[in-house]
């Protein structure tokens, strides 16, 4: 058997705004990763990715990224993805500044 499939979300950047967005179960693009659909099945992941890639006039660079279940919804497992829910750490800009709760963990950044 193939190795176990690690859960994923579909993520992309908004075509016009350029910011990070995630695909929800009801086919919307959300700016809060916790609302994203957590995909636990490999075949379903492929279908969802295909759906996302079929919207080139809405988003750019759709891809599957690793995620894990969290208290409010999916959370990133890698700090790169945490940055995308968060914004840069040198200024209070990006997602955080727009009122979205940061998801996941950025090492050394517990204060934020």
């Amino acid at each position: 058997m193939s190795r176990r499939f690690s859960p994923k979300v579909v993520s992309a950047n908004d075509l016009i705004e350029g910011d990070a967005v995630w695909l929800t179960e009801d086919d919307r693009w959300t700016r809060d990763m916790a609302e994203a659909e957590l995909i636990e099945d490999e075949a379903h992941a492929a279908i969802r990715l295909l759906f996302a890639k079929g919207q080139p006039n809405v988003v750019v660079g759709a891809e599957l990224v690793d995620a894990a279940p969290g208290p409010d919804g999916p959370v990133p497992t890698h700090f790169r993805e945490a940055f995308r829910t968060h914004g840069p750490t040198n200024y209070n800009l990006g997602k955080r500044a727009e009122g979205f709760a940061p998801r996941g963990h950025i090492p050394g950044n517990e204060a934020l």
Partner: peptide
């Protein structure tokens, strides 16, 4: 409007200095 795919647009936007980064 879809006349240019992202693959085609990318080098054209890059030629005009426009990248896509993590947040924007």
């Amino acid at each position: 409007d879809g006349s240019l795919t992202e693959d085609e647009f990318r080098p054209l936007r890059l030629m005009n200095g426009l990248y896509l980064q993590l947040h924007a």
